[in-house]
Amino acid sequence: MAKKTYSFYPGCSSQTKASSDNYLKSTNSMCKYLDIELKEIPDWNCCGASIGYAEGGELPRIALSARNMALSEQHNPGMDLVATCAACWLSTREAKERIAHSSQTLSEANTALAEAGLSYKGNQAARHMAEVLVEDFGFDELKRGVKKPLQGIKFAGYVGCQTNRPFGLAGESFENPKYLDNLVEAMGGEAVPYDQKVTCCGGALAFSEPEKSQKQIKDIIESAYDHGAEMIVTPCPLCQANVEIYQGEVNKRFGTKFNIPVTYYSQLITVAYGGTAAEAALDGQLIRATRLEDIAKK
Protein backbone atom coordinates (compact mmCIF):
# COMPACT_ATOMS: atom_id res chain seq x y z
CA MET A 1 0.00 0.00 0.00
CA ALA A 2 1.14 3.49 -0.71
CA LYS A 3 2.21 5.75 2.09
CA LYS A 4 -0.66 7.55 3.81
CA THR A 5 -0.25 11.01 5.27
CA TYR A 6 -2.48 12.68 7.85
CA SER A 7 -2.56 15.97 9.69
CA PHE A 8 -2.03 14.89 13.28
CA TYR A 9 -3.52 16.30 16.48
CA PRO A 10 -1.84 14.44 19.38
CA GLY A 11 -3.45 16.37 22.25
CA CYS A 12 -2.22 17.40 25.68
CA SER A 13 -2.15 13.99 27.33
CA SER A 14 0.07 12.61 24.53
CA GLN A 15 2.86 15.10 25.09
CA THR A 16 6.24 13.94 26.35
CA LYS A 17 5.93 12.66 29.89
CA ALA A 18 2.21 13.43 30.05
CA SER A 19 -0.36 10.84 31.11
CA SER A 20 -0.64 9.07 27.75
CA ASP A 21 2.96 9.46 26.63
CA ASN A 22 2.86 5.69 25.97
CA TYR A 23 -0.10 6.16 23.60
CA LEU A 24 1.86 8.57 21.41
CA LYS A 25 5.01 6.43 21.43
CA SER A 26 3.14 3.29 20.46
CA THR A 27 1.10 5.19 17.87
CA ASN A 28 4.31 6.41 16.25
CA SER A 29 5.65 2.84 16.16
CA MET A 30 2.37 1.49 14.80
CA CYS A 31 2.38 4.14 12.08
CA LYS A 32 5.94 3.29 11.13
CA TYR A 33 4.88 -0.32 10.51
CA LEU A 34 1.78 0.78 8.58
CA ASP A 35 3.68 3.34 6.51
CA ILE A 36 1.59 6.18 7.88
CA GLU A 37 3.12 9.62 8.11
CA LEU A 38 1.68 11.85 10.83
CA LYS A 39 2.29 15.53 10.24
CA GLU A 40 1.73 17.22 13.56
CA ILE A 41 -0.40 20.38 13.43
CA PRO A 42 2.06 23.15 14.28
CA ASP A 43 1.30 24.91 17.56
CA TRP A 44 -1.94 23.00 18.23
CA ASN A 45 -3.79 23.84 21.46
CA CYS A 46 -5.92 21.99 24.00
CA CYS A 47 -9.45 21.14 22.81
CA GLY A 48 -11.06 22.03 26.15
CA ALA A 49 -12.19 18.41 26.55
CA SER A 50 -15.68 18.04 28.00
CA ILE A 51 -14.94 19.76 31.26
CA GLY A 52 -14.00 23.29 30.21
CA TYR A 53 -17.63 24.34 29.95
CA ALA A 54 -18.05 26.08 33.30
CA GLU A 55 -15.46 28.74 32.65
CA GLY A 56 -15.11 28.40 28.90
CA GLY A 57 -18.73 28.48 27.79
CA GLU A 58 -19.64 27.81 24.18
CA LEU A 59 -17.88 30.04 21.64
CA PRO A 60 -14.49 30.12 23.37
CA ARG A 61 -14.60 26.32 23.40
CA ILE A 62 -15.50 26.16 19.72
CA ALA A 63 -12.72 28.66 19.02
CA LEU A 64 -10.17 26.27 20.55
CA SER A 65 -11.02 23.58 18.03
CA ALA A 66 -11.42 26.09 15.20
CA ARG A 67 -7.87 27.29 15.81
CA ASN A 68 -6.52 23.74 15.51
CA MET A 69 -8.50 23.10 12.35
CA ALA A 70 -7.44 26.44 10.84
CA LEU A 71 -3.78 25.66 11.56
CA SER A 72 -4.24 22.22 10.08
CA GLU A 73 -5.85 23.58 6.91
CA GLN A 74 -3.09 26.13 6.53
CA HIS A 75 -0.05 23.94 7.22
CA ASN A 76 -1.23 20.47 6.24
CA PRO A 77 -3.56 21.13 3.30
CA GLY A 78 -5.31 18.32 1.52
CA MET A 79 -5.06 15.90 4.44
CA ASP A 80 -7.60 14.58 6.89
CA LEU A 81 -7.14 15.77 10.44
CA VAL A 82 -6.59 12.75 12.70
CA ALA A 83 -6.66 12.64 16.50
CA THR A 84 -5.73 9.76 18.78
CA CYS A 85 -7.43 11.12 21.89
CA ALA A 86 -11.17 10.55 22.20
CA ALA A 87 -11.85 13.98 23.69
CA CYS A 88 -9.68 15.77 21.10
CA TRP A 89 -11.52 14.01 18.31
CA LEU A 90 -14.94 14.63 19.80
CA SER A 91 -14.34 18.33 20.46
CA THR A 92 -12.90 18.89 17.01
CA ARG A 93 -15.65 17.07 15.21
CA GLU A 94 -18.33 18.67 17.34
CA ALA A 95 -16.96 22.17 16.68
CA LYS A 96 -16.81 21.38 12.98
CA GLU A 97 -20.49 20.34 12.98
CA ARG A 98 -21.62 23.33 15.02
CA ILE A 99 -19.86 25.67 12.61
CA ALA A 100 -21.24 23.83 9.59
CA HIS A 101 -24.79 24.13 10.92
CA SER A 102 -24.70 27.83 11.70
CA SER A 103 -23.38 30.68 9.58
CA GLN A 104 -23.49 32.82 12.72
CA THR A 105 -21.16 30.45 14.56
CA LEU A 106 -18.87 30.39 11.52
CA SER A 107 -18.62 34.15 11.40
CA GLU A 108 -18.19 34.44 15.17
CA ALA A 109 -15.50 31.78 15.23
CA ASN A 110 -13.68 33.51 12.41
CA THR A 111 -13.93 36.87 14.15
CA ALA A 112 -12.23 35.30 17.16
CA LEU A 113 -9.65 33.50 14.99
CA ALA A 114 -8.79 36.74 13.19
CA GLU A 115 -7.30 37.94 16.48
CA ALA A 116 -4.71 35.19 16.05
CA GLY A 117 -4.30 35.90 12.32
CA LEU A 118 -6.17 32.73 11.34
CA SER A 119 -9.29 31.77 9.45
CA TYR A 120 -11.33 28.58 9.31
CA LYS A 121 -12.65 27.15 6.07
CA GLY A 122 -13.83 23.70 7.06
CA ASN A 123 -12.29 21.70 4.24
CA GLN A 124 -10.76 18.86 6.25
CA ALA A 125 -12.45 15.84 7.82
CA ALA A 126 -11.92 15.38 11.57
CA ARG A 127 -11.22 11.71 12.20
CA HIS A 128 -10.08 9.34 14.92
CA MET A 129 -7.11 7.04 14.40
CA ALA A 130 -9.44 4.06 14.85
CA GLU A 131 -11.34 5.24 11.76
CA VAL A 132 -8.10 5.40 9.82
CA LEU A 133 -7.30 1.81 10.75
CA VAL A 134 -10.76 0.42 10.10
CA GLU A 135 -11.75 2.49 7.06
CA ASP A 136 -8.49 3.31 5.28
CA PHE A 137 -6.87 -0.07 5.95
CA GLY A 138 -9.52 -2.55 7.02
CA PHE A 139 -9.08 -5.67 9.12
CA ASP A 140 -7.82 -7.90 6.31
CA GLU A 141 -5.13 -5.43 5.40
CA LEU A 142 -4.18 -4.94 9.06
CA LYS A 143 -3.95 -8.69 9.52
CA ARG A 144 -1.32 -8.92 6.82
CA GLY A 145 1.31 -7.13 8.88
CA VAL A 146 1.07 -9.54 11.82
CA LYS A 147 4.37 -11.28 12.58
CA LYS A 148 3.73 -12.33 16.16
CA PRO A 149 0.05 -13.11 16.68
CA LEU A 150 -1.22 -12.30 20.18
CA GLN A 151 -2.31 -15.89 20.45
CA GLY A 152 -3.95 -17.09 23.62
CA ILE A 153 -4.34 -13.67 25.21
CA LYS A 154 -7.87 -12.77 26.23
CA PHE A 155 -8.69 -9.09 25.88
CA ALA A 156 -11.64 -7.05 27.07
CA GLY A 157 -12.05 -4.42 24.38
CA TYR A 158 -13.06 -1.34 26.32
CA VAL A 159 -14.43 1.20 23.86
CA GLY A 160 -15.77 3.59 26.51
CA CYS A 161 -17.71 6.73 25.70
CA GLN A 162 -16.24 9.37 23.52
CA THR A 163 -14.75 7.21 20.77
CA ASN A 164 -18.21 5.68 20.57
CA ARG A 165 -20.75 8.39 21.33
CA PRO A 166 -22.15 10.61 19.96
CA PHE A 167 -20.29 9.98 16.70
CA GLY A 168 -18.56 6.62 16.89
CA LEU A 169 -17.38 4.73 13.86
CA ALA A 170 -19.63 4.50 10.81
CA GLY A 171 -21.75 1.36 10.79
CA GLU A 172 -21.11 0.53 14.46
CA SER A 173 -23.79 0.42 17.13
CA PHE A 174 -23.50 2.62 20.20
CA GLU A 175 -24.43 -0.22 22.53
CA ASN A 176 -22.11 -2.90 21.18
CA PRO A 177 -19.48 -1.58 18.78
CA LYS A 178 -17.40 -4.37 17.30
CA TYR A 179 -14.37 -2.67 15.77
CA LEU A 180 -12.09 -2.97 18.78
CA ASP A 181 -12.87 -6.68 19.15
CA ASN A 182 -12.24 -7.14 15.44
CA LEU A 183 -8.95 -5.32 15.77
CA VAL A 184 -7.93 -7.58 18.68
CA GLU A 185 -8.79 -10.65 16.63
CA ALA A 186 -6.98 -9.33 13.57
CA MET A 187 -3.87 -9.23 15.78
CA GLY A 188 -4.44 -12.87 16.74
CA GLY A 189 -5.82 -12.19 20.22
CA GLU A 190 -9.13 -13.29 21.66
CA ALA A 191 -11.79 -10.66 22.36
CA VAL A 192 -14.01 -11.77 25.23
CA PRO A 193 -17.63 -10.69 25.24
CA TYR A 194 -18.48 -8.73 28.40
CA ASP A 195 -21.19 -6.32 29.37
CA GLN A 196 -19.30 -3.14 30.27
CA LYS A 197 -17.71 -2.40 26.90
CA VAL A 198 -19.23 1.08 26.58
CA THR A 199 -19.62 1.97 30.26
CA CYS A 200 -18.39 5.37 31.32
CA CYS A 201 -15.22 5.36 33.48
CA GLY A 202 -16.32 8.60 35.12
CA GLY A 203 -14.28 10.76 32.76
CA ALA A 204 -13.11 13.97 34.36
CA LEU A 205 -15.26 13.17 37.39
CA ALA A 206 -12.75 10.48 38.35
CA PHE A 207 -10.94 13.52 39.70
CA SER A 208 -13.73 15.56 41.18
CA GLU A 209 -16.10 12.78 42.30
CA PRO A 210 -13.75 9.85 42.96
CA GLU A 211 -16.17 7.76 45.03
CA LYS A 212 -18.82 7.90 42.30
CA SER A 213 -16.41 7.27 39.45
CA GLN A 214 -14.59 4.44 41.15
CA LYS A 215 -17.85 2.53 41.23
CA GLN A 216 -17.87 2.82 37.42
CA ILE A 217 -14.27 1.65 37.18
CA LYS A 218 -15.02 -1.26 39.50
CA ASP A 219 -17.97 -2.38 37.35
CA ILE A 220 -15.85 -2.32 34.19
CA ILE A 221 -12.91 -4.27 35.60
CA GLU A 222 -15.10 -6.73 37.47
CA SER A 223 -16.96 -7.61 34.30
CA ALA A 224 -13.71 -7.94 32.35
CA TYR A 225 -12.39 -10.39 34.96
CA ASP A 226 -15.66 -12.27 35.22
CA HIS A 227 -15.62 -12.88 31.49
CA GLY A 228 -12.09 -14.24 31.54
CA ALA A 229 -10.13 -11.24 30.27
CA GLU A 230 -6.46 -11.00 31.16
CA MET A 231 -6.00 -7.54 29.79
CA ILE A 232 -8.09 -4.52 28.89
CA VAL A 233 -7.48 -2.62 25.65
CA THR A 234 -8.89 0.80 24.83
CA PRO A 235 -8.69 3.60 22.24
CA CYS A 236 -9.14 6.40 24.81
CA PRO A 237 -6.40 7.99 26.94
CA LEU A 238 -8.75 8.96 29.77
CA CYS A 239 -10.33 5.48 29.86
CA GLN A 240 -6.84 4.02 29.96
CA ALA A 241 -5.66 6.27 32.78
CA ASN A 242 -8.80 6.03 34.90
CA VAL A 243 -9.15 2.27 34.61
CA GLU A 244 -5.45 1.58 35.14
CA ILE A 245 -4.16 4.02 37.73
CA TYR A 246 -7.05 3.93 40.18
CA GLN A 247 -7.09 0.15 40.62
CA GLY A 248 -5.28 0.53 43.95
CA GLU A 249 -7.89 3.04 45.13
CA VAL A 250 -10.73 0.83 43.90
CA ASN A 251 -9.22 -2.12 45.75
CA LYS A 252 -9.07 -0.10 48.96
CA ARG A 253 -12.63 1.15 48.57
CA PHE A 254 -14.30 -2.09 47.52
CA GLY A 255 -12.01 -4.75 48.94
CA THR A 256 -11.25 -6.09 45.46
CA LYS A 257 -7.91 -7.43 44.29
CA PHE A 258 -7.78 -5.97 40.81
CA ASN A 259 -4.47 -5.93 38.99
CA ILE A 260 -5.30 -6.00 35.30
CA PRO A 261 -3.18 -4.30 32.63
CA VAL A 262 -4.91 -1.63 30.54
CA THR A 263 -3.31 -1.11 27.15
CA TYR A 264 -3.87 0.81 23.91
CA TYR A 265 -4.73 -0.81 20.57
CA SER A 266 -1.58 0.85 19.22
CA GLN A 267 0.50 -1.19 21.67
CA LEU A 268 -1.18 -4.42 20.59
CA ILE A 269 -0.60 -3.68 16.92
CA THR A 270 3.02 -2.68 17.51
CA VAL A 271 3.77 -5.92 19.37
CA ALA A 272 1.89 -8.06 16.85
CA TYR A 273 3.83 -6.40 14.03
CA GLY A 274 7.09 -7.47 15.65
CA GLY A 275 7.89 -4.28 17.55
CA THR A 276 9.93 -4.28 20.73
CA ALA A 277 8.52 -3.62 24.18
CA ALA A 278 10.15 -0.19 24.02
CA GLU A 279 8.54 0.57 20.66
CA ALA A 280 5.17 -0.42 22.13
CA ALA A 281 5.98 1.76 25.18
CA LEU A 282 5.10 -1.12 27.48
CA ASP A 283 7.31 0.49 30.12
CA GLY A 284 4.58 3.12 30.35
CA GLN A 285 2.18 0.72 32.07
CA LEU A 286 1.65 1.08 35.81
CA ILE A 287 0.37 -2.49 35.76
CA ARG A 288 2.79 -4.34 33.52
CA ALA A 289 1.35 -6.08 30.49
CA THR A 290 3.65 -9.06 30.95
CA ARG A 291 1.98 -11.25 28.34
CA LEU A 292 2.63 -8.60 25.70
CA GLU A 293 6.18 -8.14 26.98
CA ASP A 294 6.75 -11.89 26.59
CA ILE A 295 5.56 -11.86 22.99
CA ALA A 296 7.67 -8.78 22.21
CA LYS A 297 10.73 -10.60 23.59
CA LYS A 298 10.23 -13.74 21.48
Binding site: C12, S13, Q15, A18, S19, D43, N45, C46, G48, A49, I51, G52, Y53, A54, E55, G56, L64, A204, L205, F207, S208, E209
Partner: peptide, 25 residues
Amino acid sequence: TTQKFASMFWNNLAQTGRVNELKLS
Protein backbone atom coordinates in the same frame (compact mmCIF):
# COMPACT_ATOMS: atom_id res chain seq x y z
CA THR B 1 -16.11 19.93 43.23
CA THR B 2 -16.78 19.35 39.54
CA GLN B 3 -17.46 23.05 39.10
CA LYS B 4 -14.13 23.83 40.71
CA PHE B 5 -12.38 21.28 38.57
CA ALA B 6 -14.07 22.51 35.38
CA SER B 7 -13.03 26.05 36.14
CA MET B 8 -9.46 25.02 37.07
CA PHE B 9 -9.19 22.98 33.89
CA TRP B 10 -10.16 25.92 31.70
CA ASN B 11 -7.90 28.39 33.48
CA ASN B 12 -5.06 25.89 33.26
CA LEU B 13 -5.36 25.43 29.49
CA ALA B 14 -6.13 29.10 28.80
CA GLN B 15 -2.83 30.12 30.33
CA THR B 16 -0.39 28.28 28.06
CA GLY B 17 -2.71 26.80 25.42
CA ARG B 18 -2.18 23.28 26.71
CA VAL B 19 -3.11 21.45 29.88
CA ASN B 20 -0.47 21.12 32.55
CA GLU B 21 -1.55 17.89 34.20
CA LEU B 22 0.68 18.25 37.25
CA LYS B 23 -0.54 21.74 38.12
CA LEU B 24 -4.10 20.63 37.50
CA SER B 25 -3.77 17.66 39.88
